[in-house]
Design a protein around this nucleic acid. Structure first.
Lengths: 105, 105
DNA sequence: GGCTACACATAGACTGCCTACATGTAGCAA
DNA sequence: TTGCTACATGTAGGCAGTCTATGTGTAGCC
C-alpha cells in the first residue's frame, strides 16, 4: 500500500482499535497488524505522537501502568472519543462512497 | 469531507475521470464535481500541477485546442495511463478493504 | 555477555495538497 | 463602456501530518 494513502485516516484507525478496550501504544501497533492481516505496520514514530495528539484533543485518556518492571502508557477512549469515532466512521463511509463512485466500483 | 483524506488518491481520480474520453483541466474539475454530487470541488491549484505531473509520468498526453478564442489543453490517457488506472483501482480496493476491516464495517 | 523483543519518545525531513495570486478571453447586463 | 461572471491555465509558497532516524531503557533467553 502506498505510504500516503493513510493520511487523514490514522485517527480513525487508532480510535477504532481502542473501541471497547484499553491498550498501550505497542499493543495498538500489534493490534492493527493483526486486524489488517499484516497490511498495516505503523512505525512507532507515527503512532506515539498521534496518540498524544488525540489525548490533547480529549479523545483519549491515558495512565501509566508498570507491568513486570516495564512502564506502559495505557490508552482508552473518552466519551468524546467515542463520539469522534462514530463521526470518523461516518466520514469513512462518505469518503469511500465518493471516491468509489468516481473510480467506478 | 476533511481535506487531507484525499491524499494519495488524487491521481486515481484524475485517471478515472479521463477513462475513455478527452477533457481539458477545467472540464475535469467539473466532471469530478458532477460524478461526486458536489462532494469533490478540487481547486485549480491542485488539479493543474497534478495533470502536468501525470503527463511527465507518461500516464497522460495533452494537446492544445483553441475553442472560440479560448486556449484549452486537452488531456487523454496513454496506454500506460490505462495500466496505471487499473493499478490504482486495485490499490483502492485493497485500501478500502484494509481500513474498512479495521474500522469495522 | 550478547541478542532479541518489548516499550516509549523526540527531532527533523519530506511530500503532496491547498491557499493565494496572476493572467487573460468571452459574453452579458446595466 | 464599464463592470461582472464564467471560463481557462498556471505558479509560488505554506502547512499539516506522516515517516525516518535516532535515543533510551528493561526483561528474558541462550
Amino acid at each position: 500500500m502506498k505510504a500516503d494513502t493513510l493520511r487523514g485516516h490514522l485517527d480513525a484507525l487508532l480510535l477504532a482499535v481502542l473501541d471497547g478496550r484499553k491498550l498501550h501504544g505497542y499493543a495498538i501497533i500489534e493490534a492493527l497488524q493483526l486486524r489488517s492481516d499484516g497490511a498495516l505496520d505503523l512505525p512507532t514514530g507515527t503512532v506515539y505522537p498521534a496518540l498524544r495528539r488525540l489525548e490533547r484533543a480529549g479523545w483519549l485518556a491515558s495512565e501509566w501502568d508498570v507491568v513486570s518492571g516495564r512502564k506502559r502508557r495505557t490508552y482508552r477512549l473518552t466519551r468524546s472519543g467515542e463520539q469522534a469515532l462514530a463521526a470518523e466512521r461516518a466520514e469513512w463511509r462518505e469518503f469511500t462512497s465518493v471516491i468509489g463512485g468516481v473510480l467506478g466500483t
